[in-house]
Amino acid sequence: MISRRFERALVTGGGGFVGSHLCDRLLRDGTEVVCVDDLCTGTTRAIAWLLRHDGFRFLEHDVAGPLPPLDRFDLVAHLASPASPVDYLRLPLETLRTGADGTRHALELARTSSARFLLASTSEVYGDPLEHPQRETYWGNVNPIGPRSVYDEAKRYAEALTAAYHREYGTDVAIARIFNTYGPGMRADDGRMVPTFVRQALAGEPVTVHGDGTQTRSLCYVDDTVDGLLALAASAEHEPVNIGNPDELQVITIADEVRRLAGRGSPVRHVAADPDDPRQRCPDITRARAVLGWSPRTDLTDGLRRTIGWFADADVGDVQSATRGE
């Protein structure tokens, strides 16, 4: 294990949920940050607090196209991609191009800058897993032509390309397989489980659970995810590392906890299960503990309470319109 500090970082997808939190942490650690985002799933209103920072520069650009001339960086963090089902089903070709051409452009910048390259991959590379919990050595069970394939295969290709750059050029790469992450700053309308449950519960509406709710997820609070990403970036690790919370819960349990904390008396309403929706999702984080000294610290109830509080304090209508560019 090694540790390093970064002077200048480029973060693709820095206007997104995890990306904006990563930019914020880098800035607070004294790193100058250039954020590249095409705003296909948001607007600059979502990163207004970052734009006021002297060390932050925003560049509106689609990373599927060649990057404009930029100075050298010592960290290139590639987080660009539509990440919620609502977004990648709406933008299937854009998602594939970002995983392919966007990853190549980010890797080329890292290679020519002799920078550390951090790929934000996903637990979706495991598909609907036949191994449980999922270790990094598991190759996955993915439907390559299903509706979720545009995201799953884009990330799998991005991992393959990243590994090839390391073998061919010796590029200093890191691959983070991020499991379900939640927290303040999520879009209320992005279609993912936690913001959907929170939005519905705060409005006193039925909380919609897909299927019977016995499918499992493991939720990691965003601050812990960012800690893991930075620990991986600062390490010498080149193999994929799971970044997630190993506490596995049924979706119905998560819905009930959101309902309890919101205190609005919302009922549960079961709806049809999504196609190819994984039945089980839980990371084995043995490698993260061993090579990074990292594990999540935020209790689910505490993290959900902070998230619900943020949504309750925010003007959800403004958040939704901002992220849709209205």
Rank of each mutant, 00 (worst) to 15 (best):
19 G>K: 02
19 G>A: 07
19 G>T: 03
20 S>K: 15
25 R>H: 12
26 L>A: 02
30 G>S: 08
33 V>P: 01
35 C>I: 11
36 V>I: 15
36 V>D: 00
37 D>S: 08
38 D>G: 00
41 T>K: 02
42 G>Y: 07
45 R>F: 15
45 R>D: 15
46 A>I: 03
48 A>C: 11
49 W>I: 00
50 L>K: 03
53 H>Y: 01
55 G>P: 00
56 F>C: 08
57 R>L: 10
57 R>C: 12
59 L>Y: 01
61 H>G: 10
62 D>L: 08
64 A>H: 01
64 A>Y: 04
65 G>A: 11
65 G>S: 14
70 L>A: 09
70 L>R: 07
72 R>P: 09
73 F>V: 14
75 L>N: 03
77 A>W: 09
77 A>M: 02
79 L>H: 10
80 A>N: 03
81 S>F: 09
83 A>I: 10
83 A>G: 04
84 S>G: 09
84 S>A: 14
85 P>S: 12
91 L>R: 09
93 L>S: 07
95 T>Y: 11
95 T>G: 06
98 T>C: 13
100 A>F: 14
101 D>C: 11
105 H>N: 15
105 H>V: 12
107 L>F: 09
107 L>M: 07
110 A>K: 02
111 R>H: 12
111 R>G: 02
111 R>E: 09
112 T>I: 14
114 S>T: 05
115 A>H: 04
116 R>A: 06
117 F>M: 05
117 F>Q: 02
117 F>D: 04
118 L>F: 05
119 L>G: 02
120 A>E: 00
120 A>T: 06
122 T>W: 01
127 G>R: 05
128 D>I: 06
130 L>T: 14
130 L>R: 14
131 E>S: 11
131 E>A: 14
133 P>C: 14
135 R>T: 15
138 Y>F: 15
142 V>P: 00
144 P>K: 03
145 I>N: 06
149 S>P: 03
151 Y>G: 02
151 Y>L: 02
153 E>H: 03
154 A>D: 04
154 A>W: 02
156 R>A: 07
156 R>V: 11
158 A>R: 00
